[in-house]
Amino acid sequence: MLADAEERQLKDGSIKRWIDQLKGVSYDMDDVLDEWGTTIAKSQMKVNDHACKTARKVCSMIFSCLCCREVGLRRDIAHKIKELNERIDGVVIEKDRFHFKSSEGGIKQLEHQKTTSIVYAAEVKGRENDKERVKKMLLSESSQGPALRAISLVGMGGIGKTTLARLVYNDHEVETHFDKRIWVCVSDPFDEIRITKAILEGLMGFAQNLNELQNLVQHVQ
């Protein structure tokens, strides 16, 4: 359903807000799990450390204190999980009113589809700030010189990473700033030779009749 949501958010601001809510709750879920895992690891480390250095009676008392502390932490984690469940219920209820179309394959299909740089910028709403931030990084002084710079757009499927990349790629300032712009889709399975050929085609307008990665990379250089 995220594939349908991503496409429709360009014209419907309420769907974009729904995707932002979904993204927010998913990140908070990760945070709670990380917090719980870290808490367990710290408690185990403390218990093991005191077991090696202290007498059994003292260690027992410390272990009891740690257990009491864990009870409080568990209560805190449980409260956060309950709150997250309530937020998820709200996201699901709101999802139903949009009547998203679901496709077989779901996220896997969305992640593996081929992409192009074509974008209808006039139909994209609410991405100006994100676009300007990426542009600023691309056009800054730090992007000059021989050092290679990579800017990653990270997030769950369906939140519009590809759309944002398209907006930046087709921006007039970006277009005039760089001598060459090449759009290459890297999907599964990862094929270095196919990717390098795509880069060459973007540079020269045609694909080289080469099959060895070394020769292809030399042509790119």
Rank of each mutant, 00 (worst) to 15 (best):
Q109F: 00
M204L: 13
Y120A: 12
E7F: 01
L167A: 10
A122W: 00
M204Q: 12
N85Q: 05
G155K: 06
L66Q: 06
I199A: 14
K57N: 11
R149M: 10
K197V: 09
Q214E: 15
K57I: 13
T39E: 06
V184P: 04
V92S: 07
T162Y: 01
M61K: 13
M61D: 03
I77W: 00
L213I: 15
K197M: 12
L66K: 08
T176C: 14
N129C: 10
V32P: 05
N170K: 10
P146F: 06
Q208T: 02
D49A: 10
R181L: 10
Y169G: 10
L210V: 13
I40Y: 12
E175C: 14
Q218H: 10
K53E: 12
D20A: 14
D191E: 14
L138N: 13
Q21W: 00
L22G: 10
G105S: 04
H172Q: 10
G158D: 02
R8P: 09
K16W: 03
L148E: 05
F100A: 04
N170M: 07
I40F: 12
D76G: 01
T162K: 12
R194A: 15
G105H: 03
R87C: 03
G106R: 08
W183I: 14
E132S: 09
E123I: 03
L10I: 03
K180N: 11
G37R: 13
G24W: 01
E141F: 11
L203G: 07
Q144E: 15
K108G: 14
G13F: 02
E141P: 10
L210M: 11
E128M: 03
E86I: 02
P189F: 00
A78Y: 01
V217W: 01
M61R: 14
A51W: 13
R133T: 09
Q144D: 14
L203E: 01
T54I: 04
I62L: 06
I107F: 00
F190S: 11
I151Y: 08
G37M: 06
H219V: 15
D188K: 08
D34R: 03
K197L: 13
S152K: 02
K131H: 01
K80M: 00
A55Q: 07
V134E: 08
I118D: 09
R75L: 11
R149D: 00
A78K: 07
L33I: 07
V134Y: 05
K180D: 11
A165Q: 15
E123V: 03
K101E: 07
V32W: 01
Q109D: 08
E128A: 11
D171S: 07
V25T: 03
K136E: 09
I159Y: 04
Q214N: 15
L203Q: 06
G160H: 09
V174F: 03
I193Y: 05
D76H: 02
R133C: 05
G205Y: 02
I88A: 01
L216F: 07
F100T: 01
D28T: 04
K42E: 11
R56H: 09
E175D: 11
H177P: 06
K125S: 15
E123C: 03
V184M: 09
R149I: 14
R181C: 12
I193S: 08
S142H: 13
